[in-house]
């Protein structure tokens, strides 16, 4: 379902009136932000084959660019402050793919979502669906002028099947009906999808990729998404990202590799494409708009 159709068909009684106003505020803010950011830029260096490993020696060929991050305090829900100040960005490209390495300090590896209080670490890059013409709002785009987002999720890389029995290893339950496993045995979410009844893993049964470990495994840790404004993020029909990363006591080092050929344009030598960033710190309960971000910066393919 496309986004316009979604908004038209949705049975929300309480229709949103604030989104348009916030979008306008975002655009006004964008003007000053863009003036600041155009002076700096990220240069992608050409290589014969882009590396997927974050520790690959080839990354030495890419100029590191520090990107200042800001707490998202423009729209609700806001993040008042964050300890994370900057993200280190490098980019390489070959004949088929563009790879971006993102590094930032994070003292806690948050990749387990087995309890109410656990939130994932994550990072995302964003660019316009079509970079020709004026850039959309850096805040997830706007209706009619969308953005492409590649979102790396820590749990999709490290903890696909982590849930209650991993969070509480001594738990016991005598029977889970329709799970596909016998009484006394502990089912995994995947059992409902293979041996049991899908509808009892409700969100997965209705096609929510966040609830389906099989979909997550097929996609890999980086999900491609589209958005046309706040709260409109949807998984893209095409999933073409590669990469992942490592955590050490210094923080995260993540590679996001994407095809040069996108649906509406192709990244090419000499081209300049606006790129925006977002980072979520799970330990700080950051999720959705409560994140640090960097508005559009120019990515130049050297």
């Amino acid at each position: 379902m496309n986004l316009a159709k979604f908004w038209m068909s949705r049975r929300t009684v309480l229709a949103g009136g604030t989104a348009a106003l916030l979008s306008l505020a975002g655009r006004l803010w964008l003007r000053s932000a863009r003036a600041q950011q155009t002076a700096s830029g990220i240069t992608a260096a050409p290589v014969s084959r882009v590396p997927l490993a974050p520790e690959d020696a080839l990354w030495g060929r890419a100029k590191p660019t520090p990107v200042v991050l800001l707490p998202q305090n423009l729209v609700l829900p806001r993040l008042a402050k964050s300890n994370l100040q900057a993200l280190n960005v490098q980019a390489l490209y070959d004949a088929a793919r563009l790879a971006v390495r993102l590094e930032w300090p994070d003292a806690h590896k948050d990749d387990e979502l087995g309890t109410v209080q656990q939130y994932r670490d994550g990072v995302a890059i964003q660019f316009p669906v079509n970079p020709a013409g004026s850039a959309p709002s850096f805040m997830m785009g706007q209706p009619g002028s969308g953005v492409v987002i590649y979102h790396w999720k820590s749990d999709w890389q490290f903890s696909l099947t982590y849930d209650v029995d991993e969070a509480y290893p001594n738990m016991y339950a005598d029977y889970y009906p329709f799970s596909g496993v016998a009484a006394g045995e502990m089912p995994e979410a995947t059992d409902y999808l293979t041996k049991g009844r899908r509808e009892y893993l409700t969100a997965a049964a209705v096609g929510n990729s966040l609830a389906d470990p099989f979909v997550q495994k097929r996609i890999g840790p980086i999900q491609k998404m589209r958005a046309e404004g706040f709260g409109t993020t949807e998984a893209d029909q095409v999933q073409d990202a590669q990469g992942g990363g490592v955590w050490s006591s210094k923080g995260w080092r993540i590679v996001i590799s994407i095809p040069l050929k996108q649906s509406a344009f192709t990244f090419a030598k000499g081209m300049t494409v606006p790129l925006a960033f977002a980072v979520w710190d799970g330990a700080d309960r950051q999720r959705n708009g409560q994140k640090t971000y960097a508005p559009w910066m120019n990515l130049v393919l050297a």
Binding site: T12, V206, N208, G231
Partner: peptide
């Protein structure tokens, strides 16, 4: 923030759309 929750016009029941919810 995703408008994943809606109130039905026919009976006022409030539901979380399990397809849109991102947890």
């Amino acid at each position: 923030p995703r408008k994943a929750i809606y109130k039905r016009p026919e009976d006022g029941i409030v539901l979380i759309d399990q397809e849109r919810c991102r947890g």
